[in-house]
Amino acid sequence: MAINLQQISARLNFYMRIKELDVYQLSVMTQTPPAMVGCIVQGEEYCMDDLLAFLKQLPDLNSRWVIYGEGNVFKGEGDAHPEAHLKKDRTAYLSEMQNLLHQLEEIEKHQQEQTHLDQLRNRIRELTKHI
């Protein structure tokens, strides 16, 4: 399964909105340099070891959800009191989740379009070889 930095960024931004955190606060919480947190949050290039070390410092956040989109946002969300993780009402979270899903769909659509463009470019290269 390929890791997509833009999707990780979108999911992490969703988590930050839920927890009402900014990059600096997240940096302090995780004891991670602000520049590294900024790279992760913005979907820029970074080392996966840095991402994993960063995620280990967020014990309530489900790292599989961040990386692969699998499971729930929070670890143990199936527990009796998931509200302990939440600061806003559920309607606001549903709206945020819809926005996140839309962002992820746009990222996926863009990737599919890019793949199609790459296939067309390769086909053109193959055809021009015979000219």
Rank of each mutant, 00 (worst) to 15 (best):
L86G: 02
L58N: 03
I107S: 01
H102C: 08
G43W: 12
V41Q: 07
K88N: 09
D22M: 09
H81G: 15
E77Y: 09
Q98K: 10
L101H: 12
E77K: 01
D60R: 08
I18D: 06
D89R: 04
I40Q: 02
V28S: 02
Q98S: 10
F54L: 04
D22Y: 11
G78L: 14
Q31L: 14
I40D: 07
L101K: 07
A53T: 10
W65Q: 09
V37T: 01
V28K: 06
N99Q: 12
E105M: 04
D22R: 06
E96N: 00
D89A: 00
K87Y: 13
E20T: 02
E45I: 05
E77L: 06
R17W: 09
M16I: 00
Y24H: 06
D89K: 04
Q57R: 07
A92F: 15
Q31H: 13
E20R: 05
A53W: 08
P59L: 01
I18V: 13
I40E: 09
M48V: 15
L52R: 11
E77I: 03
C39E: 14
A84P: 04
K109Q: 13
N99C: 05
E70W: 12
G76S: 11
R90S: 05
Y15I: 11
P59Q: 03
D49E: 10
L86T: 00
G38T: 02
E44C: 11
Q98D: 08
L26V: 02
I67L: 02
P33T: 07
L51P: 02
E105F: 10
Y46D: 03
T32Q: 00
E105S: 12
G38P: 04
Q98G: 04
V73M: 14
A53L: 11
M36L: 13
E45G: 04
L52Y: 08
Y46F: 13
G38Q: 07
N72C: 15
L21A: 06
E83G: 03
M29T: 08
V73A: 11
E108A: 04
Y93Q: 02
C39L: 14
G38I: 07
Y93A: 02
S27V: 09
S63K: 15
R90M: 07
G76P: 14
A53I: 10
M48L: 15
F14T: 03
Q25T: 01
H110Q: 08
D60C: 03
T32N: 00
A92G: 08
N62R: 04
D79H: 15
G76W: 15
G71K: 06
H85G: 05
T30Y: 11
K75Y: 15
F54W: 06
A92I: 14
D49Q: 09
G69D: 10
Q57P: 07
H110Y: 12
G38E: 03
D49A: 09
D49I: 14
